[in-house]
């Protein structure tokens, strides 16, 4: 349904060189699928999420590639044309629910406004649908006239989810939807996403730095590092048999309760500076398997049993 091909996004900065935050990225999402996008902060995962909706301007720009939504490329579309894609075909849930709602607008009016912008129905019908949506995300209809500041973070995120689902989109991009919430609420929100996906048959791209969460919630996932997708495959495969050294390192870094004698490992080193990325493979300075070749040439993408991995350790074209 969604197919991202060779997508690149560049950010312009006033006092430093431009940064290629997303670099020739490929991945796809099928209908009703929950796909994870995982990586450290600065890996380009949030930029990729925003780029799919073409929301990276004014400082960012899509400089190459295609975003195919049911076969239609979104990249050449004008802002006006994108307006009818946003909300209606793809919608988004943001990281911080505290700042993502208009503080001067009632919760219900947010929903009604969104519905009436895109659909020619009466205000009464829109209100009925808004109340139904609030119920779907677990908010009682008597909060309809509340202002955002009267709600907790978890409830506001539920409202954001209701807003994202308001127009029955095919795809919801959730950018770290639980990071700003406390742990118990996090689980509730993830469960809500799982239920809604089944109920609304909507595909979800779940962006997170939390690999454990992604492994539990998603069917497929893309692991990002330094603007590249390093590995893209089914989540069960990644859990059982990670291919890329970076994925392996991430998995080791998950605190494992069952093996409590194993000490907490974080990956040594720092994420790359994308205004001056390392030559060759961008992970090589932190990679325990790095060879001379990795320091010299960018690794190609290999397809192994339907899994994608961008690393020199695989395939036969090593020289």
């Amino acid at each position: 349904m969604l197919k991202v091909e060779n997508l690149s996004v560049r950010y312009m900065q006033r006092f430093s060189p431009p940064v290629l935050a997303v670099d020739r990225v490929n991945f796809q999402v099928e209908e009703g699928e929950m796909v994870g996008l995982v990586g450290e902060s600065g890996s380009g995962k949030s930029t990729l999420g925003l780029a799919i909706m073409k929301l990276v301007s004014p400082s960012g720009k899509i400089v190459g590639g295609r975003i195919l939504l049911n076969g239609r490329d979104l990249v050449p579309l004008s802002e006006k044309e994108m307006r009818f894609v946003r909300g209606r075909e793809i919608s988004m849930v943001f990281q911080d629910p505290m700042t993502s709602l208009d503080p001067l607008m009632r919760i219900g009016d947010h929903l009604i406004e969104t519905i009436l912008t895109h659909e020619k129905i009466s205000k009464k019908e829109a209100k009925e649908r808004a109340i139904k949506l609030l119920q779907d995300v677990g908010i009682s209809p008597d909060r309809f006239y509340d202002y955002p500041h009267q709600m907790s973070g978890g409830m506001r995120q539920r409202v954001m989810i209701a807003l994202a689902l308001a127009l029955n989109p095919k795809l919801v991009i959730a950018d770290e939807p639980t990071t700003a919430l406390d742990v118990i609420v996090q689980d509730q929100i993830i469960d809500l996403f799982k239920n809604l996906r089944n109920q609304f048959r909507v595909a979800i791209v779940m962006i997170s730095h939390d690999l454990a969460l992604e492994l539990e919630a998603t069917e497929k996932m893309a692991v990002m590092y330094g603007g590249w997708i390093m590995e893209f495959s089914r989540s069960v495969d990644i859990a059982k048999d990670p291919l890329h050294p970076y994925t392996k390192a991430l998995l080791k870094a998950i605190p494992n309760i069952e093996l409590n004698d194993q000490k907490l490992i974080s990956i040594p080193g720092h994420p790359p500076d994308l205004s001056n990325p390392p030559k060759g493979c961008r992970f090589h300075p932190r990679c325990p398997y790095a060879e001379d070749l990795c320091r010299e040439k960018e690794p190609p993408v290999h397809v192994i049993d339907g899994r994608y991995v961008k690393c020199w350790l695989f395939g036969s074209d090593r020289r």
Partner: peptide
């Protein structure tokens, strides 16, 4: 601010 970007993500018209 964030909520303006959120408004854009819902396809609201520029003017509004």
């Amino acid at each position: 601010q964030d909520f303006i970007r959120a408004c854009k993500s819902r396809g609201l018209p520029e003017r509004s």
